[in-house]
Amino acid sequence: QTIHNGDQTYHYDNPEEAIKVAQKLAKIYNLTVTVKGNTVQVH
């Protein structure tokens, strides 16, 4: 599972963990989380 947060990319073995982290980032920075296959984008 990969999270793209602007210019930063994070890799997680656990998809659920990746989505949790993405949602935390989204709340902190007031962003949107988009899940596309194995990629979670925060923008």
Rank of each mutant, 00 (worst) to 15 (best):
I19N: 09
H11K: 07
K27T: 09
T34Y: 04
A22V: 03
A18N: 00
L25Q: 00
T9A: 05
V33K: 00
V40R: 00
Y29S: 15
Y29V: 15
N14I: 03
T9K: 05
T39W: 06
L31A: 10
G37M: 03
L31W: 09
N38Y: 02
H43K: 08
G37W: 02
V21A: 15
D7M: 13
L25F: 03
G6K: 11
H4T: 08
I3N: 11
V35F: 01
Y10W: 08
Y12E: 02
V40Y: 00
Y12W: 03
E17D: 10
Q8S: 10
H43W: 06
L25E: 01
H4S: 09
H43V: 07
Q1V: 13
Y10E: 02
N38G: 05
A22W: 05
H4F: 09
D13M: 08
K24T: 10
E16M: 07
Q8Y: 15
Y10M: 05
K24C: 15
T34V: 09
V40C: 02
N38M: 04
T39D: 05
N38I: 04
I19S: 07
L31M: 08
V35I: 06
I3S: 11
V42E: 01
V40N: 00
V40L: 05
T9G: 03
V33T: 03
Y10L: 11
I3L: 11
N30A: 05
N38W: 02
D7A: 08
K36R: 11
T39V: 12
G6I: 11
T34E: 07
V21R: 04
Y29K: 15
Q8H: 15
G6V: 10
D7I: 14
T34Q: 05
L25T: 00
A26T: 08
H4Y: 07
K27W: 05
V21H: 09
E16A: 09
V42Q: 01
Q1L: 11
K27R: 10
V35M: 02
G6E: 10
Q8P: 07
H4A: 08
V21I: 10
K20T: 06
K24I: 15
I3Y: 04
Q23W: 04
Y29T: 15
I19L: 14
K36Q: 13
D13A: 13
N5R: 13
Y12L: 05
Q8A: 11
Y12R: 00
E17R: 06
P15D: 06
Y29G: 15
Q23M: 09
V21C: 15
H43E: 04
N30I: 05
Q23T: 10
L31K: 06
E16F: 07
H4P: 09
N38H: 05
E17W: 08
K27V: 06
I3H: 12
Q1T: 12
T9W: 15
Y10Q: 03
H43R: 08
V42P: 01
N5F: 14
V35H: 02
Q8C: 15
I19G: 04
T32L: 10
H11W: 13
K24D: 07
Y29I: 14
Q41E: 09
K27A: 09
V42D: 00
V42L: 05
G6N: 12
Q8G: 08
E17P: 00
D13C: 14
A18D: 00
V40Q: 00
V21F: 10
P15N: 09
I3R: 10
T32V: 13
H4D: 07
Q23Y: 05
Q8L: 13
P15G: 05
N14E: 03
G37A: 04
V42W: 02
I28F: 12
A18Q: 01
L31V: 13
H43P: 02
Q1N: 11
Q41I: 15
H43I: 08
E17Q: 11
Y12D: 01
I19Y: 11
I28W: 13
N30L: 05
Y10C: 14
N38K: 04
V40H: 01
A26M: 10
N5M: 13
N14D: 09
A26F: 03
K36H: 14
V40T: 01
K24A: 12
Q1K: 12
L31C: 14
E17V: 10
E16P: 01
P15A: 12
I19E: 10
K24Y: 14
K20F: 08
V35N: 01
I3A: 10
T34M: 04
N30E: 08
A22D: 00
H4Q: 09
N38T: 07
G6W: 14
V33A: 02
N30R: 03
K27M: 09
G37K: 02
I19W: 13
I3G: 11
G6L: 11
V42H: 01
L31Q: 05
I28P: 00
